[in-house]
Design a protein around this nucleic acid. Structure first.
Lengths: 253, 253
DNA sequence: AAAGATTAACACATATTTGTTTATTTTTGC
DNA sequence: GCAAAAATAAACAAATATGTGTTAATCTTT
């Protein structure tokens, strides 16, 4: 195991437990206490945790970053498979809008260097990915939200009122029969709703871990959706409901 | 010399010469040809150059990135000194606008974690710096310009029409008696002009390497400027001209 | 075919990572 | 307060990884 990987695991552990004894880490990772101690100093130097006697604890200010990183890596394989299907829907000359989700980030990666498209992004990471490639893109603008690592708020709304992308790809926190497509934050959900309404075609990217989950607020009705891409077949009831609303269901393999 | 530094030098050489023989590099850097060869493979792997028989050549698509990096590092010390003076002008509760220049990037770094300010940025790098810190900020939005690594165009103008920051810090390409404050690109200059006009106070950041230079297009009249921060005393004539227009001249030491 | 360029294989020096041991500091129970 | 226990820090050593140069073999170009 690479030192980097070990440190990532340590961070994960600290994030869920908020505080963790050094001995537990040494035992769980089967390395010497001194090694863990050195890892913790390194993570402290990076400003992610605070070393305390007997172990370490999370720094409040680093929580958003770590949580984002974990979110981006969770079900990464599924997200990549979904992104691969997503870009099949993209045609030359299209203007593509992406929300600030980690699934859309994978779409941005897949879109990089594809050429002959213009991308509209609302997330900082997607902007960085596209800036490193040669894909032309426009940032929506707005106030930075450290949790979502995206831009939202009145400036974003202002810009969205003027733009009409051909296709919007977006992700959700939950997909359930009783609540539909839901998201965790009102402000982020508002951006998604606006994006969807201003675009000619809306495509939801929903990996299987979102099935059955209900988050805080509903984004849109299923009727407004054109396609839904996922990585596993949903259960029969959900499938029936999805297909019943007239959308195109794409299952990436 | 660190391998990284050697590779940076190689890139610089390739950028100016566009193509360079392997032997020249080996000789100039006083290392074995094999070492250069391995450096070149690494740079090729990173997508920055193409290895050809006898040496290497620049990849068109990487040119903007490398040029930006070089620009950001040129006169870095001067830029940092200027940024240090700049943040002395910032007061708690201020809304600060930054253009996409590499000097403003240093201001963003100096501003990070200062707290109690809201920053308005038009450059991607500054956004990344602020996102890593805890400083709240808003991105202007707009279409990404790979050369300036900033956002500009109609979307940016739209947003600027609505916002009125307390202070704007911006840099220029040239400062000369005959043309005033000038910049290289019309589109970028337009963003700067709008930024300056919408803000309550405009502060130019001009390191000494810009003295006497005239770039393509004039940004604003000196009269519209409140302060000018530089790192070396300009010549007597220029100084007289600057002070004569009623602005505050700050020389960082 | 000869010259030049590239690749591959090996060796050496240096840097990094990890564990062990020992000394020092901090905490805790009395 | 003091002594025992626990935690930390410092110094050293072994193992591994990385960077560099040498040599020899192979491939391109002219």
């Amino acid at each position: 195991m690479l030192p980097t990987e070990r440190r990532r695991i340590i961070l994960e552990q600290i994030l869920v437990a908020r505080t963790i004894p050094l001995k537990d880490l040494a035992h769980a990772l089967a390395v010497h206490e001194v090694t863990i101690r050195r890892d913790l100093s390194e993570l402290e130097r990076e400003g992610l945790i605070e070393v305390v006697r007997g172990g370490a604890r999370i720094l409040e200010q680093a929580q958003a970053d770590i949580a984002y990183e974990m979110r981006a890596n969770r079900e990464l394989f599924a997200k990549q498979a979904i992104a691969k299907e997503a870009i099949k829907l993209v045609q030359d000359g299209d203007t593509i809008a992406l929300d600030a989700s980690t699934t859309s980030l994978e779409v941005a990666r897949a879109l990089a260097n594809r050429g002959r498209v213009h991308v509209l992004v609302s997330g900082l990471e997607a902007a960085n990915v596209l800036a490193a490639s040669k894909t032309p893109f426009t940032v929506l603008g707005g106030t930075f939200n450290p949790v979502a690592r995206g831009f939202s708020g009145p400036i974003t709304e202002l810009v969205l009122g003027k733009l009409h992308p051909d296709k919007v790809f977006f992700s959700v926190k939950g997909l359930s029969l009783k609540a539909g497509l839901t998201d965790a934050s009102l402000i982020e959900a508002e951006v998604k709703t606006r994006l969807i309404q201003s675009s000619k075609s809306a495509i939801a990217l929903v990996d299987h871990s979102k099935f059955g989950a209900t988050a805080f607020t509903t984004i849109i009705d299923l009727q407004e959706l054109d396609s839904l891409i996922t990585d596993k077949d949903p259960d029969a009831n959900t499938k029936k409901w999805l297909l019943g609303s007239g959308l195109k269901l794409i299952v990436a393999k």
